[in-house]
């Protein structure tokens, strides 16, 4: 049996979604503006978009690029971050470069990369890759840096080589922090994907949004917003589930608020 309190806690995000949609509904009914359809109108337009073959293919293609970009970024960034965290030389070498790249808006590179590589999948995937890399490197770096020296000594005393230490001690010890980075990276991948599609206006979810906007199909605009928002929330929720499963051994993450009164 689930206690009522636990039930409320579990359904709270769903309740929040319903609450937000309700606020939207009331606000749009109050405003009575053409450019602000009601929540029910927007929700009703969702099946049309997902039923339309072309836009569905478009959205799925976007998601595939996102997955590839995210995957490659994670595979390359984690080893680099871990090395930076364990070696002062490696971190001194890369840190300034990463600091300079940090404030560059990655999606804004879209037009420039398009100039070089055309508008194909490579360009779009590359931009997503760039967007995801930095947070994953940063968190892997922080995670590896925080690994206790004594733990590595114990490993070395048991006869592990430096590489084995990195894979068998640093990687698992830094995993909670690495996964936090991946979670940020995943949301950023979606953001970069949408933004670059809005800038390039060739295909994908971001393009559907602005095409509908240009053609005055306001229901479609808002329906797309719900779809993209739902993608973000679902990706995050699924990843969070995987994450808690993987790092169940670690200290419980900060969750319960501590009231100061």
């Amino acid at each position: 049996m689930i206690s009522p309190a636990a039930l409320v806690k579990r359904t709270a995000p769903v309740l929040a979604c319903i609450g937000l949609l309700a606020i939207w509904q009331v606000a749009s009914l109050g405003l009575k503006s053409d450019s602000f359809p009601t929540a029910t109108d927007a929700v009703r337009a969702i099946p049309d978009i997902l039923g339309d073959k072309e836009s569905l293919i478009n959205i799925l293609a976007s998601l595939r690029r996102m997955a590839v970009g995210f995957g490659i970024a994670v595979l390359l960034s984690i080893p680099l971050g871990l090395l930076m965290g364990r070696s002062r030389a490696v971190s001194a070498f890369f840190n300034p470069l990463l600091m300079v790249i940090y404030p560059v808006p990655k999606a804004a590179l879209m037009p420039i990369i398009m100039l070089w590589l055309g508008v194909g999948d490579i360009t779009k995937t590359l931009v997503i890759f760039l967007g995801v890399s930095l947070p994953v490197i940063y968190h892997s770096f922080e995670g590896a840096k925080a690994v206790e020296e004594k733990m590595l000594w114990s490993g070395a005393a048991m006869g592990l080589s430096p590489l084995q230490c990195l894979v068998r001690i640093v990687l698992p010890a830094a995993l909670p922090e690495i996964l936090t980075g991946c979670r940020t990276g995943l949301v950023l991948a979606l953001i970069t994907m949408i933004t670059s599609e809005m800038i390039a206006r060739q295909s994908g979810a971001g393009n559907i949004l602005f095409n509908a906007l240009d053609m005055g199909q306001y229901d479609t605009v808002y329906a797309m917003i719900i779809i993209v928002g739902a993608m973000g929330i679902c990706l995050d929720a699924v990843f969070e589930r995987v994450r808690t499963r993987l790092v169940r051994w670690s200290e419980p993450q900060f969750d319960m608020p501590l009231s100061f009164s």
Binding site: P13, C17, G19, L20, V187, I194, I225, V228, G232
Partner: peptide, 20 residues
């Protein structure tokens, strides 16, 4: 719960609505 829902939402998707 509201933050949990809104934080991972790609805010840039709201931009067309904000424009309207």
């Amino acid at each position: 719960p509201i933050v949990r829902v809104l934080a991972p939402l790609p805010k840039v998707a709201l931009y067309p609505a904000l424009l309207l």
